[in-house]
């Protein structure tokens, strides 16, 4: 059984099992779930949709994984998505003939820049002023909605600029274009954190900031950096959200994304207590969240009620991560420790 021990001890194993169970459930209960067709050279089907729809959450999860690894949290990402979408929409303009006000790259660059600034603001509050992450990011999560609404003059801005479509709706070599963006960002992040000492530094800060400081790590700058990076990821996510629906709605863009993204990260095996992170796991986590949502929709449940299920899953996952809960369950089964 050596192979079993090897496979089950891989960090990616349990998230994949969860995804497989969900998929298997769909195989039996949702008709045509796995049907993939080729239309106009693109792949179509539920599975492709799941990948496409989970793109914004995946992007948020990349940034959030690093934040949570430092024992922080960022609940402002949903609002930053709205700000980014609002900025890009206002700069492109709602011209009916599809002539952008400013070149697309300037609009997108500005949106990402504003998002990074928003992330840096969070980072400053947490690392320099020493606020609790939840309060610091709560400020932006609420004020950020206001900023997004003020940016768009409290209107929903519709876009008619064809080339901007590609980021959310386009395909490359038969696969959704957003997938390539995620792949590039994921690989770069993985390289920077795992091929240099940066990842270790981040984990060290998450385990014990004071100890990390005494070990010569600039904890403040690391914390500042991860929040700025989270803002960056949220900015790109906002561009994709805006491009997918070709509109920017300050009130609803990215609403509730923070919970889905946190769930994705936690499902992927990153602990809320900080100190370890797992980027690939977060991606699988995002897929699980999206598959779960799609499955709930497939049963004809309204999207609003799907929140209840997501919230319950968050509760269950948090419980599973709690040491006390594990000992309780283990005691229930008469064992000292659970295998998980």
């Amino acid at each position: 059984m050596a192979w079993w021990k090897y496979v089950s001890s891989r960090k990616i194993f349990w998230p994949l099992v969860a995804l497989a169970v969900l998929m298997a459930f769909n195989l039996f209960f949702t008709p045509k779930f796995f049907r993939i067709e080729v239309k106009e050279g693109h792949l179509y089907g539920n599975v492709i949709d799941i990948i496409k729809n989970s793109a914004p959450i995946m992007l948020l999860a990349i940034g959030l994984t690093l934040v949570i690894a430092t024992k922080g949290i960022d609940i402002s990402v949903g609002s930053i998505v709205a700000i980014s979408a609002g900025v890009v929409a206002m700069l492109l303009g709602g011209d009916l003939l599809g002539v952008p006000k400013y070149p697309i790259w300037i609009a997108m660059g500005t949106a990402i820049l504003v998002s990074v600034l928003a992330g840096m603001w969070n980072g400053m509050l947490v690392s320099r002023i020493g606020m609790q992450p939840i309060i610091a990011t709560l400020i932006l999560s609420v004020a950020g909605r206001g900023i997004a609404m003020v940016t768009t003059n409290a209107l929903i801005v519709w876009l008619y600029i064809k080339p901007f479509r590609i980021y959310g709706q386009g395909y490359l070599l038969g696969l959704p274009f957003s997938l390539y963006i995620i792949a590039v960002l994921l690989i770069l992040t993985a390289l920077v954190t795992r091929r240099t000492a940066l990842g270790l530094f981040i984990e060290a800060v998450g385990i014990n900031p004071t100890a990390a400081r005494f070990a010569g790590i600039n904890a403040k700058n690391i914390i500042f950096g991860v929040y700025a990076f989270s803002g960056f990821c949220a900015g790109i996510s906002g561009l994709i959200v805006c491009s997918t629906v070709m509109s920017a709605d300050g009130n609803n863009a990215g609403a509730g994304y923070e919970l889905s993204a946190i769930l994705a990260v936690v499902l992927g095996g990153t602990s809320l207590n900080g100190g370890k992170f797992y980027l690939l796991g977060s991606m699988v986590g995002a897929l699980i969240v999206q598959t779960l949502t799609t499955t709930i929709y497939a049963f004809g449940v309204p999207p609003e009620i799907a929140q209840v299920v997501i919230a319950l899953v968050v509760l269950v996952i948090s419980l599973l991560q709690s040491g006390k809960f594990r000992t309780m369950i283990a005691g229930f089964f008469g064992k000292r420790e659970l295998a998980i």
């Binding site: 919970l259 946190i262 809320l272 929140q307 209840v308 919230a311 319950l312 968050v314 509760l315 948090s318």
Partner: peptide, 16 residues
């Protein structure tokens, strides 16, 4: 009972 951070549980409560 399970020694969990209040913000994550009440955030789940928010959506619940």
């Amino acid at each position: 009972a399970f020694d969990l951070p209040p913000f994550i549980i009440t955030l789940a409560g928010l959506y619940l």
